[in-house]
Amino acid sequence: MSEPIIHVRDLVVGFGDRVVLDHVSVDVMGGEIFGFVGGSGSGKSVLLRTIIGLLAVRGGSIEVLGTRLDTASGSERRAIERRWGILFQQGALFSSLTALQNVQFPMREYLHISPRLMDEMAAAKLEMVGIRAVDHNKFPAELSGGMTKRVALARALALDPELVFLDEPTSGLDPIAAGDFDELIRTLQKTLGLTVFMITHDLDSLYTVCDRIGVLADGRVVAVGGISTILASPHPWVQAYFRGRRATIVQSRIANRTS
């Protein structure tokens, strides 16, 4: 946890005359799980999509893994893209490829390795995220929601990235599957030494896996820090979110679990 892996300064993003992100600054340190939270339409996904380069920047700077992405050349950008993995909200698996082929896709593009090693690697990755061998040759349409997310995570990890972006990893999963997925992220983060940037709505995830949390409201980052720092924030949205009825229930449950 030394230098920041993601270093965003005064980022401004907008569509037409609407400004979605208004001078957002955020730092994500190496080896931490950073959770980003905010209401629907607050621009969380916009922030993620801007960092990974899918949306244009109006102002400010983005530095990822030591490279200024807003000014980087095509080849510099591709070098960085090879070092991160992204889990999209709906998985975004290629529907014409099997689970195994989906995981092999980035390997095929970027690494010059033998088909045998590619098979071994893809199978190992799928096993690591908890997909059993019988499901390796299934197509995305035949996979359940939780399995789709797991396969998508395996694909995001295919090239052993240093940094992983997760867009609402637990949305659409039942609480048990979501809990398992949180645990999986925790385990993989430890064994692979990942830095995780995660957008989430899930209070459980925020409490149990995130090292630090950022709160986005009104196009700005209104609070950053550990859970206790966030809870101390006076911002009305933060109060409503973390002191609401559901949050209180989650808090007491987690308190019970730890005691």
Partner: peptide, 19 residues
């Protein structure tokens, strides 16, 4: 950490992929 990673990989069943 490498030790942990290796034991994690070792747990995966051998040669699962059959073309």
């Amino acid at each position: 950490r490498f030790e942990e990673l290796f034991s994690e990989v070792q747990e995966t069943p051998p040669g699962a992929a059959a073309r």
